[in-house]
Design a binder for these strands. Structure first.
Lengths: 213, 213
DNA sequence: AGCCTGACTAATATATAAACTGTTCAATCG
DNA sequence: CGATTGAACAGTTTATATATTAGTCAGGCT
């Protein structure tokens, strides 16, 4: 979600609002303040954004677009296997989330507020990141290191398994290094699961699938 | 944490408080009300519990003790492999957490309040459940179906990977069946990881361990 | 006409006062 | 004398009044 399709004035509003959101928090910045920063009246803001929440949504969309672009660079890293890229992906995602939310109450407030009112935005973001992850899996399939038949399903499973390390609510329990080490442990195990499936791709069904109650 | 080491009066207080906590919520039940239910003065409560929060803590300890006992029954299930028991463990844990917190604001409030003020209790609980899970892993090691060298470490990893399905905050996003299916997907993958490690137990190190950044 | 303004309103948030609750402990009871 | 009480206190929650803010729109400006 780039800012290029936005009006010049809209971009100015967004920039002013963003500055205040991060510095003073979402609830503490008023529409009048944003308007003053842009040398316009508060009423005029509504010619460019339907509501204050939509300004926040656009701000978060831009940030998250940048984050997805950032994650996408993992795909282009030369000399890395698909397995390594998968690990890079999750470690980078964890690092970005940790740095954004840890000891940054303002960013956390903005994110919480938006997700509470606009849950769809969070889903879109997860899907966008899932697409990048899916490309990594496809790459592994193509070079023969993976043997994943249902890439979207496995993408979801991986996101679920790493949830603990991407959920901001939990970042205060442990330090960054500790969490990163535990994330690596999960990834190790998942990769070994892939290795097993790759080695047994011809077999009909994994035995574990029949043992659900 | 059984109630048997408690004074008769303490048990009466705990029972009265528990009823009110679940029916009216933690914050809305007063010490006077609990005392009235027990035909005693509010001051007398403090001869049996240091504070209101300690009553809540004891209540949760009892509940969680029962839950751990419940999970432990998975261990005694006859004719189930260690892998099946591991799946049973997590599906049961998920089901218990879901049923307790989904559409039960009072239980959720009590749990949140306690964990906010007494984070240690949550850790103890996680460790107690981890011990049960560890026994399952040991069983798999003993019968040769697993090949886990560091059982406590793998226990932690499994708990991390299943975090999404045990964290009450997230239970409103999807339905129970959907979440259970996704949990099964994670367990499938983890079990395949175990299978791989079991088949390669003689090798020196997994290749994935050297690719961390 | 097409933008833009700023007073206006309903709704939300803040500040203040009143009421209540967790906890203590000197006095009372058995 | 140990067990129990309930008034008293400090801290918190709730209720109320006041102020601010998001969003609207009739009118002014270019």
């Amino acid at each position: 979600m780039p800012t290029t399709n936005l009006d010049e004035t809209a971009r100015q509003i967004l920039a002013a609002a963003s500055r205040r959101f991060l510095h003073y928090g979402y609830k503490k910045t008023t529409m009048s303040e944003i308007a003053d920063d842009c040398n316009m009246s508060s009423g005029n803001l509504y010619r460019y954004f339907p509501s204050k929440l939509d300004i926040a949504e656009m701000f978060v969309r831009v940030l998250r677009g940048e984050q997805v672009d950032n994650l996408r660079t993992v795909l282009d890293a030369p000399g890395r296997t698909a397995a390594q890229k998968m690990r890079d992906f999750f470690l980078l995602k964890f690092k970005l989330a940790y740095e954004r939310f840890h000891d940054n109450a303002k960013a956390f407030e903005l994110s919480s507020e938006l997700i509470l009112e606009r849950p769809k935005v969070a889903l879109e973001w997860e899907n966008a990141e899932g697409r990048v992850l899916g490309e990594i899996l496809n790459e592994g399939n193509a070079d023969g290191s993976f043997a994943i038949d249902d890439v979207p399903a496995i993408t979801k499973i991986l996101q679920n398994a790493a949830y603990r390390f991407t959920s901001p609510a939990v970042f205060h329990e442990s330090g960054e290094e500790m969490l990163a080490a535990e994330l690596n442990g999960v990834i190790d195990l998942v990769l070994d699961g892939f290795a097993w499936r790759s080695a047994h791709r011809d077999q009909s069904k994994p035995s574990s699938a029949s043992s659900r109650f």
